[in-house]
Design a protein around this nucleic acid. Structure first.
Lengths: 128, 128
DNA sequence: CAGTATCCGTGTTGATACTG
DNA sequence: CAGTATCAACACGGATACTG
């Protein structure tokens, strides 16, 4: 069924943007950050991302995100032929590099949230 | 009409993720990168982003993105009371910091696109 | 457990037309 | 020029049910 990445990326888009969008995608960001810390199993990863504070990923979206990132050579999928099934996800070298960039961004965000919140108050106040 | 940022961010999401999503949003990324270089007027910015290789931003989306980033204290809007109207957009200090992070990510992407493309080929080939 | 398949609501997006 | 307003299409994302 062709993991084409995401419907949004029409063929006419330059590869550079494509990769950027995968990495900065809603769940891509969180997957990369989570896997940067350690490898996870599927459901484990779902819970890990859910506990970050936001809404939890649906299985569908997590699957899709993982497939896209695997196809892009960032995520390594290790499916063990056991029952019950066990699949471990980890980062490749490429993925680790990507994760570093994304993590830097996330850390910066963390440091600056307060300033953003303050800015928003001022903005909203100024036009009410 | 309340620039609430983007419908997706339900109230129940932690601020940290909110900011992250604004900064990593499809057009947010490109706006920050463009403005990191120099300030732009509205239409000028539209063209600048369009010439990056992908599809061009609609006026609506550019407006929305700029408003969100302005509200978050990253973009400065300077509307001159002349005819015809002239509005210049530039980054605040906060915005410049954000842009640096995002730019680092974009530059990394640029350096690694080839590896990603190669990975995709292997992936696709492996299941055909 | 780790997915896949399907349906379906709704948010995001983009054309288009209009205003100051 | 720099937007705003409105509308329609469609992609995204989630809930659910099912499989190996």
């Amino acid at each position: 069924m062709a993991v084409s990445s995401s419907g949004a990326d029409a063929e006419r888009m330059c590869p550079h943007r494509l990769v950027l969008e995968h990495v900065t995608s809603r769940w891509g960001v969180l997957v990369l950050i989570a896997l940067a810390e350690r490898s996870y199993r599927f459901s484990e990863l779902r819970r890990a991302i859910g506990s970050t504070g936001g809404r939890t990923v649906s299985e569908k979206m997590l699957t899709q995100t993982l497939q896209i990132l695997e196809r892009d050579g960032m995520v390594h999928r290790d499916a063990k032929p056991v029952i019950p099934p066990r699949v471990d996800y980890s980062l490749t070298d490429l993925g680790r590099e990507a994760a570093e960039q994304v993590r830097a961004l996330a850390l910066w965000t963390d440091r600056r949230v307060d300033d953003v919140l303050k800015a928003r108050e001022k903005y909203d106040e100024a036009r009410s």
